[in-house]
Simulated scan of single mutants.
Amino acid sequence: MEASKSASLPAVVQISGVYTDPWYMITILILYLYFVTKAGPQFMELRKAYELKRLILAHNLIQVVSCVYVIKEVFFITDNTILYFWKCRDIGSSPEHVRRYYSLAYFLFWLKLSELLETVIFVLRKKQKQVSKLHIFHHLSTVTLVYLLINHNENGDAAYFSVFLNSIVHVFMYSYYFLAAVADKKIVQALWPVKKSITVMQMTQFALILVQVACQIVLCGTPPLQIIYFSAVIVGMFYGFLDFYNSAYQGSQRCKNLSPSPEVGK
């Protein structure tokens, strides 16, 4: 639904300027990009790395709880039919469905902004190698996709299929990061295969999302400009994670020290 149509929505779901004004989002992303690539590394150059263990544990736990909440809300919004991803949908006719559709979209906006903290943690812990181009691209693009979900979605609640898949992956991923942050080295080493599985899950979700995109184009007549941008982002992330998978898990034994994905919360 276009932002310009928000005036026709019930007052409870009126879209505020925070969500409609792209410059709010753009400003935050520019500041994020500047800090993690320039200001942050310069600030840490002559300083010792911060531990930040409590912050890391809290961040991972919040992400797990948040993703469980997102999954629950997606089931409600779609009347438990989210797995029928090929169907054409609207956002429902009942006021409660419409309200919770937008409430979840707003929640996702702030949730994706909170994920930017991961890169900041990398910088403050002097783990600049983990601030890869793929990592930055992933976090920047997900925020823009939620902006489109709020303001320019014409696929109804079918757009929540990608959110649903991503939230499932993140429940496993952040749970693993939380455990890895508190467990001893032997347990972490024993869980090494889980790292590979998480990356496989990430690639699988992107493949399934692209299948849904194809169905929406053929069956639902989705506007091409939205699909082109969305598809470009998903394809870019798929190949980025595939490249990471090949280098991290198909390479030499030394790659075992690498994190399972570009969005580690450790």
Rank of each mutant, 00 (worst) to 15 (best):
Leu134Pro: 09
Glu154Trp: 13
Tyr102Glu: 02
Arg100Gly: 09
Met237Asp: 00
Ala105Glu: 05
His138Leu: 07
Arg54Pro: 03
Lys38Met: 12
Cys255His: 13
Val74Gln: 01
Leu108Phe: 07
Phe109Ser: 08
Trp110Thr: 05
Glu154Tyr: 14
Ile168Thr: 05
Ala39Ser: 13
Tyr249Lys: 01
Leu108Asp: 00
Thr20Asn: 11
Gly221Tyr: 13
Leu108Asn: 04
Ser94Pro: 02
Leu31Val: 13
Ser4Glu: 08
Leu165Lys: 09
Pro224Ser: 14
Ile228Trp: 10
Ala58His: 03
Pro41Ile: 03
Ala180Glu: 03
Ala105Cys: 15
His97Asn: 11
Leu219Gln: 08
Ser252Ile: 05
Met1Ile: 07
Ala190Trp: 12
Lys186Glu: 14
Ile15Gln: 13
Gly92Tyr: 11
Leu116Phe: 03
Gln63Asn: 09
Ser114Asp: 10
Ile136Arg: 07
Val200Arg: 03
Ala58Lys: 10
Gly40Asn: 06
Ile15Asp: 01
Leu165His: 01
Val36Ser: 02
Val194Trp: 04
Ala159Ser: 14
Ser114Cys: 14
Leu225Ala: 15
Leu191Glu: 05
Ala159Tyr: 04
Phe85Ser: 00
Phe178Leu: 09
Ala49His: 09
Val143Gln: 04
Tyr160Pro: 06
Val163Gln: 06
Gly251Gln: 03
Gln250Gly: 10
Asp90Ala: 10
Asp157Arg: 12
Lys53Val: 06
Pro262Gly: 06
Tyr174Glu: 06
Gln128Ile: 11
Ala207Asp: 03
Ile26His: 10
Thr142Ile: 11
Met203Ser: 02
Tyr239Glu: 08
Ser93Asp: 15
Lys195Ser: 01
Asn151Arg: 06
Ser259Gln: 06
Met203Leu: 06
His135Met: 03
Asp90Leu: 05
Ile82Gly: 00
Trp23Phe: 13
Arg89Asp: 08
Val233Trp: 00
Glu115Asn: 10
Val171Leu: 04
Ala39Val: 14
Thr20Pro: 08
Thr27Ser: 15
Gln205Thr: 02
Tyr50Glu: 15
Thr37Tyr: 06
Gly236Lys: 00
Leu134Lys: 02
Ala180Pro: 04
Glu118Ile: 07
Ser132His: 07
Lys126Trp: 02
Leu225His: 13
Phe43Cys: 07
Arg100Cys: 10
Thr199Asp: 10
Tyr106Pro: 02
Asn60Phe: 04
Leu29His: 03
Ser94Lys: 12
Leu113Ala: 03
Lys256Cys: 13
Val68Leu: 12
Lys5Trp: 13
Gly40Ile: 03
Ala248Leu: 06
Asp79Leu: 11
Lys127Leu: 08
Val171Ala: 03
Tyr229Val: 02
Tyr160Gly: 05
Arg125Asn: 00
Arg89Met: 07
Ala3Trp: 02
Val182Gly: 06
Val143Lys: 07
Val200Tyr: 04
Asp157Leu: 04
Ile30Trp: 14
Gly265Lys: 04
Tyr84Val: 10
Ser103Arg: 08
Leu83Pro: 01
Leu134Met: 07
Gly221Pro: 11
Phe172Asp: 09
Phe241Lys: 09
Tyr50Leu: 15
Phe241Val: 00
Phe172Val: 10
Ile71Arg: 02
Val233Tyr: 00
Ser103Gln: 13
Leu29Cys: 11
Thr119His: 01
Ser114Tyr: 14
Trp110Ala: 09
Leu29Gly: 08
Lys87Ile: 09
Glu118Tyr: 00
Met203Ile: 05
Tyr50Thr: 11
